[in-house]
């Protein structure tokens, strides 16, 4: 019973660490995907008197992904009722060229300002609109969200690590007697601690399997996907190919570290 209790405590602590880690990975993935969506939707509008190629813009800054020429036709159609065909034709000839620049990723406000200045310095460009205020607000919100997640993850990690250290002391106490007796009959360190390592590895495997089942269930039923769809984000919260080996590695490394610390901290008492 005592042994089961101690197993349960270590499995719980390891499970909490794995859930925290996986939540962090999933949220980071969501934020990155959301940033990408924002980057795709965000555009800088450039006005020029001359017809410019996409190559021209890409040469100005590497973060520019594409330049789309905006057709003034829609705007002119609404004016057609008031001015007539001849006025529209004249206006069409006089109108400058409009371009929407799409970026490779969502850039910071300072990078957006620098890019705006770079574009303005070009003589071929007469006006640049970076929609700075809107961009700044979204960017800061994202940064705040990221920061909060990092803080929560760090706190959870700290709390569970303290749980593991407490558990380690309990284990040290529980296994001390057996290790002492084995030492008296000349058992080498690896043999004395074999049981400890076996238990630690079994607990790590159980914790990893439990965490995997939880995330696979969430993924299977698509509970979070529905929420993410609202913000046009499509990511895998749990990727078995990359996340499963990572969870196993973290759990086994932590439990081996725990067992090693117990073995190293063991002093023979007779």
């Amino acid at each position: 019973m005592k042994s089961l209790k101690s197993h349960f405590s270590l499995i719980t602590a390891l499970f909490s660490i794995l859930i925290t880690l996986q939540l962090f990975l999933s949220l980071d993935r969501v934020i990155t995907a959301y940033e990408q969506t924002l980057g795709e939707n965000y555009g800088i509008v450039v006005v020029s008197d001359s017809n410019l190629s996409e190559h021209f813009f890409k040469k100005i800054d590497a973060s520019i992904k594409e330049a789309e020429a905006l057709s003034p036709k829609q705007m002119l159609q609404s004016l057609q009722e008031h001015t007539g065909d001849s006025g529209i034709n004249l206006m069409e000839l006089k109108l400058p060229y409009f371009y929407r620049l799409r970026l490779k990723h969502f850039i910071s406000p300072s990078d957006a300002r620098t890019l705006g200045l770079k574009l303005q310095r070009e003589t071929a460009i007469s006006r640049v609109e970076t929609f700075a205020q809107q961009h700044d607000t979204i960017y800061r919100l994202l940064q705040l969200f990221k920061g909060v997640i990092i803080v929560i993850t760090a706190v959870l990690f700290l709390v569970t690590s303290l749980l593991i250290i407490k558990e380690m002391r309990l284990w040290q106490f529980q296994h001390r007697e057996r290790m002492n007796i084995m030492a008296l009959f000349g058992a080498p360190v690896w043999l004395r601690s074999a049981v400890l390592f076996r238990l630690a590895i079994v607990d790590a495997v159980i914790a990893s399997i439990l965490a995997t089942i939880i995330f696979l269930t969430i993924e299977h039923y698509g509970w979070v996907d529905r929420i993410l769809e609202l913000v046009q984000v499509h990511v895998a919260l749990f990727d078995p190919l990359t996340d499963l080996p990572l969870l196993f590695t973290v759990a086994i490394s932590l439990s081996i570290l725990l067992a090693s610390m117990i073995v190293m901290g063991h002093k023979e008492e007779v």
Binding site: I181, A183, F185, G186
Partner: peptide, 23 residues
């Protein structure tokens, strides 16, 4: 520790409090 383990493998010890592994 290596030499000590080797030596202990050739010794039999009996204690007043038995020192048996409870589990």
């Amino acid at each position: 520790s290596k030499k000590l383990n080797f030596l202990r493998r050739h010794i039999g010890i009996v204690f007043q409090d038995y020192k048996l592994v409870k589990e």
